[in-house]
Design a protein around this nucleic acid. Sequence first.
DNA 1: ATGGTCGTCTAACGA
Length: 264
Amino acid sequence: MKIATWNINSLRLRLPLLKELINETQADVICLQETKVPDPLFPFEDIIKLGYPHYYFKGMKSYNGVAIISKHELIHVADTPDWCGRLDCRHIAAQLKTASGPITIHNFYVPAGGDIPDAETNPKFAHKLAFIEEATAWFEKNQPKRSILVGDLNTAPLEHDVWSHKQLLKVVCHTPPETERHNQWEKQGFLDAMRLIYPEPQKLYTWWSYRNRDWKKSNRGRRLDHIWISNDLKENLQAIEILAHARDWAPPSDHVPVIAELTL
DNA sequence: ATGGTCGTCTAACGA
């Protein structure tokens, strides 16, 4: 079973690239973030034509938005929290039917946190920290079993998840208040699947800024997108693929897809 | 040290 996660940065604009992802990977399940499409405008007919007749989505105008599309039957998981009480479409969950039984899939789009890493003066940073704390508390109470958590978590937790650990320690996404909370969240029953396959000190990036003239040449990347598996799925993990060349698809998202393969 | 670029009900906001 192949499960992909991708911050697509507008589903409607990049539908042709979603097709490209499908052609290349034949992923069974694709979790999308920043779909930027209100629910009444979700392009479900296109998604069905692409071979994904099972889907759940939660979107709004202009901002945020998440979707799970699947070749196999999904059951919606409805009783999930409204994080930070904002109704802002940053999480959706579904149960995937597999030969070995149901698997719960969580798809998250964690707040980016703004520019200044100070919760006192920057409400966006405070929101990010509060969001991660709420998620940590929820999974502490609801210990994940046969679960996969994916998404744009907007934190690069490890030294080799950024192009320069030293230079990014004061940059939002890699500051200690974020990485400590991120790691505490992961510890609520999850394993970092990407690092199980590609341990440190290998550099791993899933995002390259639009603001670099040549993303490949400067290679100032960050690992902001993640795939976590619950502890009980450790032996099921077969492979991880980071589709770095997708950064050159036109018009590119600033994030690239990550795909996990599991025997399920 | 600064500014650099995208996407969105084309305007300023969020990333």
